[in-house]
Computed example of a mutant assay.
Amino acid sequence: MARCRNTGAGLLGVAVLFQAGTAAAQDLPMDLIGNGTVSGQGVLLFLLIAAIGVAPALLIVVTCFPFIATVLSILRHAIGLQQSPPNMLIVSLALFLTYFVMEPVFSEAWRVGLGPAVQGTLPFEDAFLKTLEPFRIFMTARVDPETYSHLAELRAEDTLAPSPTSPLSLLVPSFLLSEMTRAFEVGFMIFLPFLIIDLVVAAILMSMGMMMVPPAIVSLPFKLAFFVVADGWTLVSAALVRGYM
């Protein structure tokens, strides 16, 4: 049973996408679908392909991936490395850390929504709404109230406080803006030690009269050594994950 639950959680995005496409197709008028005609099947296939195309973006914006990926990118620039680790490795690490953080949310969404829908005990429309509930709760806990209130004022919403019942068109951008703000705050703290190393190396080079030597080249080995000795990747990853626990 545990194995089935974990497998279902891993395939959560595909199932949510299929449900969204099915619900969208059911909302179409019958004359557009064509009652099973070739043109109607083509329209339905087009909608499903379009839904599959936006699936990665939909899954990313409701998880902790934006925060983790932004911090890891800032960390790479703070060290002074432009292409190492490569973007693919940064994104892969961010994805696995995202899965580590979001696995309880995926499991809960599968248990209350997708699981019953697959078993046929819950209609797809109700299953889709129940699947979104764990993600709504997760986003609400991370949304900055001030950011949410600013966006809510633009929409003239009755409530200026985030809640799991807030519309997704307001909750999701508020969540993304809040995560990006936190990512830049964490990135600033990560940047400081490496900035101090750059300043010390630049001062030493100036005192030695080596003004033509780029300080970034000389400080890079010291920053790498400092990061390795401190076990930086493990510390940063653990801190990022601990922020969601």
Rank of each mutant, 00 (worst) to 15 (best):
L195P: 03
V229L: 15
F194H: 01
F124V: 06
S163Q: 05
V200L: 11
I196E: 02
R182I: 05
V105S: 07
A20G: 13
F226Q: 06
I79C: 02
V228F: 13
I190A: 04
T181F: 08
Q19A: 15
Q119P: 07
F128H: 13
R142C: 14
L48R: 07
V43K: 01
V14I: 15
Y99D: 06
Q83R: 08
F106S: 01
N6I: 15
E125D: 08
I204F: 11
T98P: 07
Q82S: 15
M189E: 06
L32Y: 11
G8M: 14
G13T: 10
E103P: 01
V112C: 03
A216L: 13
V218Y: 04
L59K: 09
I52T: 10
A78F: 04
V118A: 05
V241E: 03
T7D: 11
H150L: 12
A69T: 10
L160A: 06
M189L: 14
G120F: 07
F227I: 09
E146V: 12
E153P: 08
M208Y: 09
R242G: 11
N87I: 12
F138Y: 09
V241W: 06
E108F: 11
G13V: 13
A9T: 09
C4K: 15
G243F: 05
Q83P: 02
Q83D: 08
D27T: 10
P123N: 14
L195N: 09
F222I: 11
F135R: 00
L235H: 14
F194C: 01
E179N: 09
L122D: 00
L59T: 09
L176N: 01
L154C: 06
T140D: 07
L151H: 00
F138M: 02
R3F: 15
E133N: 11
A225L: 13
G8N: 05
A9G: 04
S207E: 12
G187N: 05
A183E: 00
S207C: 10
A55M: 11
L11S: 11
V14N: 06
A55H: 13
V186F: 04
S84G: 04
A23L: 14
T181C: 09
V61R: 03
M211L: 15
D144G: 08
T70A: 12
S178L: 02
A69R: 07
G187Q: 00
T63Q: 02
A15E: 04
L93C: 13
T7R: 14
I197P: 00
L160P: 07
E179P: 04
V218C: 03
L171C: 13
T181S: 12
V228A: 08
I196D: 05
A50Q: 07
T70Q: 04
P85Q: 01
V91C: 12
A202R: 05
F135E: 00
I52Q: 00
T131L: 04
T7I: 07
T131F: 06
V105D: 00
F128I: 13
F106R: 00
A24G: 13
F128W: 02
L240A: 01
L122S: 05
E103I: 15
G36S: 08
L176M: 09
L114Y: 05
A230L: 10
G232W: 03
V101G: 01
L171E: 03
I204D: 01
K223F: 02
D231K: 14
P85H: 12
